[in-house]
Amino acid sequence: MSEIATATPQGHIEVKNFSLSYETIDGSVEAVTNTHIHVKPGEFVSIVGPSGCGKSTFLNAVAGFLKPTTGTITVDGERVSGPSAERGMVFQQYSLFPWKTVRENVEFGLKMRGMPRSQRERAARTLLGLAGLEAFEKHYPEKLSGGMKQRVGIVRALATGPKVLLLDEPFGALDAQTRVIMQQILTNMWQRLKISVLFVTHDIDEAIFLSDRVYCMTARPGSIKAEIPIPLERPRQQSMMMSSEFLALRRGLMSLIREESLKAMGGEINDLGMQGLNIELHGHSLADVI
């Protein structure tokens, strides 16, 4: 089993028939239902969906923090049964250890693996250099900007050489400029490391710009509504975001998401309601128009 895993390319995520319900006082709440996805080794896959649709829930299950209610999650054929250094994760909230310097944060995974101090220091320095952070190795996270914190978070997750990198809206809290730079840095690192990435976001541009494939998730209970391959060539440039190809993909995804966002808002705004606002629908569905 493990021989096969090392012989073939690694980081193949398969999720089959997945659903997850939270137990609450009001009974069980289904957050994600009937979801199938896969990420091929070395592939960059995003999941987009309106907020509250269960993206974090799903990703936390892949990371091994939550147990699926039904279905299976496997990485390279092995069932996920708990968190492991095989699956690196970057969290939406900055999750650096405030009591460790930037370098100590990056070293953490290597330390857990029992690597000697001098060796892991060297490894951490190399990695920080790749992310342009070597000047900050001795800083404590508190002193860093949001973008730098998240860069350290990514470097820390990559330091142990995981098969898979999971990111939960990692750039959600960053300003637009920093976000673009971070996307560039992430793609660069991904291309170098040839690692499988599962990226969760509510930002459609981000998903298209980064991914080989995008899954679009429905409003809660979340499930996969559509799967869109992104045939844009790599390396990708910022300028591509103006290309007609990009814009067409964007329009397609946008309408899928809009529909779900409206559902997520409770479906209160129906077509009739909109007509009341003097918008003519000409027989199109609401999602096409908005």
């Binding site: 091994g64 968190p83 250094a85 699956r87 999750s95 953490f108 995974g109």
Partner: peptide
């Protein structure tokens, strides 16, 4: 979240 971060770093 810090506990989770540590867990998925092994």
């Amino acid at each position: 979240v810090l506990v989770r971060a540590a867990q998925c770093l092994g």
